[in-house]
Simulated assay, not measured.
Amino acid sequence: MPTDSNISNPAARRRDAQLLVKHLEFLADNYVDQALVKDALLGGLSQSEVAKLLGMSKKTVNGHARVPYMRYAASIDPRAGERVHFDREFFAYVWGSDDAAQSATARCKQYDRERLLVESD
Rank of each mutant, 00 (worst) to 15 (best):
Q18Y: 00
L20C: 06
V21K: 02
V21W: 01
V21P: 07
K22T: 04
H23I: 00
H23C: 01
E25F: 15
E25G: 15
F26N: 15
F26R: 15
F26H: 13
F26D: 13
L27P: 15
L27C: 13
L27V: 14
A28I: 05
A28N: 05
A28P: 04
D29G: 01
N30M: 14
N30W: 11
Y31A: 08
Y31N: 07
V32R: 01
V32S: 00
D33E: 14
D33G: 13
Q34I: 02
Q34G: 03
A35S: 01
A35W: 00
L36D: 07
V37F: 05
K38L: 12
D39S: 14
D39E: 14
D39N: 12
L41W: 09
L42M: 01
L42T: 00
L42A: 05
G43I: 05
G43A: 04
G44P: 10
G44W: 14
L45F: 12
L45K: 05
S46Y: 10
S46A: 10
S46M: 09
S46K: 10
S46W: 13
Q47H: 12
S48E: 13
E49A: 09
E49R: 01
V50H: 11
V50D: 13
V50K: 03
V50G: 08
V50C: 11
A51C: 04
A51D: 01
A51K: 00
K52L: 02
K52N: 04
K52Q: 05
K52V: 02
K52Y: 03
L53N: 05
G55N: 08
M56Q: 01
M56I: 02
S57M: 02
S57Y: 01
S57Q: 03
S57H: 03
K59T: 12
V61E: 10
N62H: 00
N62D: 02
N62Y: 03
G63I: 00
R66F: 05
R66A: 04
P68F: 12
Y69A: 08
Y69H: 12
M70T: 13
R71F: 15
R71G: 15
R71I: 14
Y72H: 07
A73R: 06
A74Y: 12
S75T: 08
I76Y: 07
D77T: 01
P78W: 15
R79P: 07
G81E: 15
G81Y: 10
R83I: 07
R83Q: 08
H85V: 06
F86T: 10
F86Y: 09
F86H: 11
F86C: 03
D87N: 11
E89D: 07
F91G: 03
A92T: 04
A92M: 08
V94W: 00
V94A: 00
W95D: 05
G96W: 02
G96F: 05
G96D: 02
S97Q: 08
S97I: 07
D99I: 09
D99G: 08
A101R: 08
A101Y: 10
A101F: 08
Q102K: 10
S103C: 09
S103H: 13
S103W: 13
A104Y: 09
A104E: 15
T105G: 11
T105Q: 13
T105E: 15
A106S: 10
R107A: 11
R107E: 13
R107G: 14
K109R: 06
K109W: 04
Y111M: 01
Y111R: 03
D112Q: 12
R113H: 00
E114M: 14
R115D: 01
R115W: 05
R115Y: 03
R115S: 06
R115V: 05
L117Q: 07
L117H: 06
V118N: 06
E119S: 10
D121C: 14
